[in-house]
Design a protein around this nucleic acid. Sequence first.
DNA 1: ATGCCTCTATGATCACGATCAAGGAGGTGA
DNA 2: TCACCTCCTTGATCGTGATCATAGAGGCAT
Lengths: 248, 248
Amino acid sequence: MAVETANAVDKRRSLLHETRCQNCSLSSLCLPLALELEDMEQFDAIIRRRAPLKKGESLFRQGSAFNSVYAVRSGSLKQVTTEGSGDDQVTNFYLPSELVGLDGIDEQAYPGSVIALETTTVCEIPFDRLDSLSEALPELRGQLYRSMSKELRDDRRMMRLLSRKTADQRLASFFSSLSDRFRRRGYSPYSFRLSMSRADIGNYLGLAVETVSRILGRFQQQGLVEVSGREVNILNLEALLAQAQEEH
Amino acid sequence: MAVETANAVDKRRSLLHETRCQNCSLSSLCLPLALELEDMEQFDAIIRRRAPLKKGESLFRQGSAFNSVYAVRSGSLKQVTTEGSGDDQVTNFYLPSELVGLDGIDEQAYPGSVIALETTTVCEIPFDRLDSLSEALPELRGQLYRSMSKELRDDRRMMRLLSRKTADQRLASFFSSLSDRFRRRGYSPYSFRLSMSRADIGNYLGLAVETVSRILGRFQQQGLVEVSGREVNILNLEALLAQAQEEH
DNA sequence: ATGCCTCTATGATCACGATCAAGGAGGTGA
DNA sequence: TCACCTCCTTGATCGTGATCATAGAGGCAT
């Protein structure tokens, strides 16, 4: 169709507008955070917009060729690695502004599948173009190093959680961490909706579903949180934090 | 002293010779692996040689300012993070050619202390100079990305180990992995010396020392390995690998 | 509405590995 | 050579969280 209505053009423009980094509400958390306006435009030019993923759809599958990293715009995802038959492991949850796929660089293949937990939009960043651009933009390069370094640090924290903490401490940690991540993104740190199932949480924390359920029940009795299905209300964040950091 | 003996000059030259990347036996595994000869010379120029660390000495302390990453030349180290009082966690072991300190970039401070397990030499690589150099050398940049990415992948594997594997599988995994790392470095994959104590191993794998001891005893009875103090002889690597990867 | 899932909650039992306890082995300095 | 100290091994008991079993709750299509 060669003819477009003014309306259609408007729509496209507004879509374009809201998907440009300069106007993105996440720009203070995301990869280009350190860039000047003109540099950000260069960065913006290599981004590919993707159609939203529906709940359960995968951004990519384990083992598929690595070409891009992705920044989450809205929604959330989980990373799942499968080994052998039927032994899945949830290794990460991703929230808006976080970078997905960095662990695929080394082997040029993604080490796990990444699956949307709800309707989710992402920005695709082709890695070879990102790398080229990072040559000219030291701030971008630095930010990329920092992102990977931060992920390494988070991983170490997770290892400590898995090897030294009790089930109660793990869940307290998980909720504290979620709360903090929501806070940083401008959402309420006290009241939010879990996009993942109890099974996902348990799998991620190295606990059985039943244990997750039981401990949430206990937390509720203790007045730490109020949980109804996937709606969470944190009533006593301090106590939760204390519980999380408690010496064993 | 302005006068040097020929002997002293020779000594220095030979020291210089054996510590240049071009002549380093690890160059095929280490950071500059992808570099042409002339590029490698540039890289070589930013490296700082350090006096060997003795057993128990620390390369840096948790919380100290991040300035450099380090490549292990010989020996081995452990990374230890302390939280609260007396709750240490061994989060990594480093062997020759591996990069230490990458998790300090983000916060400009090292998240854990790194301690020599035996007499150990490292190459210090000031990070700001590495970053500058990586601007002009895409291969170096790529290798740096790959190193970090690989560490992310290894971390995910470790999380799976900690959250899904039994004590037996963890130890089988640990020995298989060590064996593989020695093989890649040109040492025997079957016969080696552990530079870390049982306590370190247990701490790293999320197990009590007693459990490590017991399981090593059992492995020995089963004819999988022969262990005498810190000397290890792997008798049946296939069985060990099978054990490590077994479905729970 | 109805039926069919999947997800969540809760109770009962069991097992793996932690903890407590004690003794042996090996290395190091006087 | 001996004493001391750290590291390692082995035994006995205990506790946390997995597993098994069942039922209730909530979502979704018909």
